[in-house]
């Protein structure tokens, strides 16, 4: 039985879209989509992805070309979803179930998706940032202050995300808020070294893997994707420095130091 190519196109681009939305790398999205196309028997299918767009195109046996473009909204990384969709994609390639069943399993994953509640996330910010303050050489009190600054960053990110701010602004706001709190805690005598506190808290904002993933994409030959991701990583790094400098500069001007 020949598959319905309209539905195939729909399913395949939905899968690519969901993979990318949960933070998959470009090459994983492209590879998964083209495997899926081959598994369902579409010989002439092409896929092209860059960080904010996926294009899937295929030609039906009658020689009629079809294309679908999906625009990516801004998204973070959700490892839980990524693993689930990756598993599903492998299963679809292996078993090639009917389309409505495939779509149903995607919706199933969306329904059973679980995220940590805000208090748990804030506790994670506290643990992560506090430990990094200790890691960079702070005293136990610095670790405590770093944790508090991490919680401030977490609250700040949650608030600005709800307002729909862009990544650059979110990073500046988070960095500035945490630097303010770090300086205030040091001035109050709770923390000892403001620099270790600030560095520890900043680790929640650094574009850690973004830069590495960008290099990976460049090496795989996806120049457009790689360069735009590398530019994003450098911009975020600059935003962190800008936000912190803003807070430090203001405080120093006000206190005349």
């Amino acid at each position: 039985m020949k598959p319905d190519y309209n539905e195939l196109l729909e399913i395949v681009s939905e899968m690519g879209f969901r993979l990318m939305l949960s933070g998959a790398e470009i090459y994983r999205v492209e590879e998964s989509v083209s495997r899926l196309l081959r598994a369902y028997g579409a010989e002439r299918g092409e896929v092209f992805a860059i960080p904010n767009c996926i294009i899937v195109s295929l030609t039906s046996p009658q020689g009629k070309p079809m294309t679908q473009i999906r625009r990516m909204p801004s998204h973070g990384t959700d490892i839980y979803l990524l693993e689930r969709y990756n598993d599903l994609c492998r299963r679809l390639c292996r078993e090639t179930p009917p389309f409505d069943q495939a779509l149903e399993s995607m919706r199933q994953i969306e329904r059973t998706h679980k995220v940590y509640s805000l208090p748990v996330q804030l506790a994670a910010y506290f643990l992560g940032c506090g430990m990094f303050s200790l890691f960079y050489g702070g005293s136990p009190m610095d670790g405590l202050c770093g944790g508090i600054c991490g919680v401030v960053i977490g609250l700040c990110l949650a608030l600005t995300s709800r307002l729909g701010a862009n990544l650059f602004f979110k990073t500046i706001a988070g960095a500035a808020a945490s630097a303010f709190v770090a300086l205030a805690l040091t001035a109050a005598g709770v923390g000892h070294n403001s620099e270790f506190i600030i560095i520890g808290a900043l680790m929640a904002l650094v574009p850690g893997i973004a830069f590495t993933n960008a290099m990976r994409d460049i090496m795989a030959g996806d120049m457009v994707a790689g360069i735009s991701k590398a530019a994003e990583a450098l911009l975020i790094g600059a935003a962190i420095a800008l936000g912190t400098a803003l807070a430090l500069g203001l405080i120093r001007t006000l206190t005349g130091g």
Partner: peptide, 12 residues
């Protein structure tokens, strides 16, 4: 310990 904290943030 810091990595445990961050793994929660990436929804692991």
């Amino acid at each position: 310990l810091a990595c445990i904290g961050f793994s929660l943030l990436f929804n692991i």
